[in-house]
Computed example of a mutant assay.
Amino acid sequence: MRVISGTARGKRLQAPRGTDTRPITDMIKEALFNVLGSGIGGASLLDLFAGSGSVGIEALSRGARQVVFIDNSHNAVRVIRDNLNNCGFTQGFELYRNDVFRAVEILARRKTKFDYIYADPPFTVEAIFGPLLETLDRTSLLAPDGSLIIRSPRRMILPLKLKSLQEYRVNNYGESTLHYYRLI
């Protein structure tokens, strides 16, 4: 796993040990950032279930203004911190060890808005996807022209429309699917 483009291009990234984390492949990450394009420059990104921090670090490398990493694993937070240091990032990010649902509520109370929200819940806990989408729909963390991207198992069907979010793009990659939502 590596940083694909930008100021930290080619830097190797570590993943947390064990089977709890399923890092995004370089191929899927490259496809994701091809969709986001130059819009990531100067943008803010919320990286939920951040794991190794690969997506948020890629965003920073490509010029994102601010990235907030959230993961509830002590090991994952340590690895993200190490990866940020290895890539030379000392600012432009916040890193929190917290339950994603609790963190989303805290960010909503602060009235924080993000241009992009990337969520990569554990594939082994399929029951988390519905409540996560409902929470993100209700809390309005997405900026008006922003995108919410959720990585899910390919076989999983997510709702096309919620109260304030609507799916506008779906891309399949092997056993994974990226679902793109925007505000209605």
Score class of each variant (00 low, 15 high):
A59C: 14
I57T: 07
V35K: 01
Q66W: 15
G56L: 11
G37C: 03
G53T: 10
I57L: 07
L46H: 00
T124Y: 02
A64F: 15
D47T: 11
D99S: 13
V67P: 10
N83T: 08
S61L: 12
E30F: 12
V68Q: 10
I57G: 06
L148V: 10
A76S: 14
N98T: 10
F93M: 10
V100Y: 02
S54Q: 12
L95W: 13
V125D: 01
N72S: 12
N83K: 04
Y118H: 08
G88S: 04
A119F: 03
N75L: 14
D145F: 12
G42V: 13
N34I: 07
N85I: 06
G92C: 12
K113E: 13
G41S: 13
R62Q: 14
L107W: 11
A50W: 04
T135A: 09
A64G: 15
S52K: 06
S44I: 13
V35H: 01
A127R: 13
P131Q: 09
P121L: 08
V68D: 13
G92N: 11
I106D: 09
T90I: 09
L60N: 14
I106F: 12
N72T: 12
N86A: 13
G37D: 00
F33H: 04
L136M: 02
N72W: 11
A103K: 11
V79L: 06
G37N: 01
G39K: 09
E94L: 14
K113N: 11
A119L: 01
I117K: 01
L84N: 04
G63T: 13
G41A: 14
D99W: 08
N98E: 10
E58N: 11
G146Q: 02
G51F: 05
V104P: 00
G41H: 09
G51H: 03
R65Y: 15
D47C: 11
L132G: 08
R109W: 09
P122A: 09
G88Q: 04
N86I: 07
F101D: 07
G92Q: 11
L95F: 14
D137S: 10
N34Y: 05
N83R: 05
R78I: 08
V100D: 00
V79I: 13
V35G: 00
F33L: 04
I149F: 04
V55K: 05
E105G: 13
H74F: 11
E94W: 12
L46A: 02
N34R: 07
T135V: 09
D120T: 04
F69K: 05
Y116T: 05
R81Q: 08
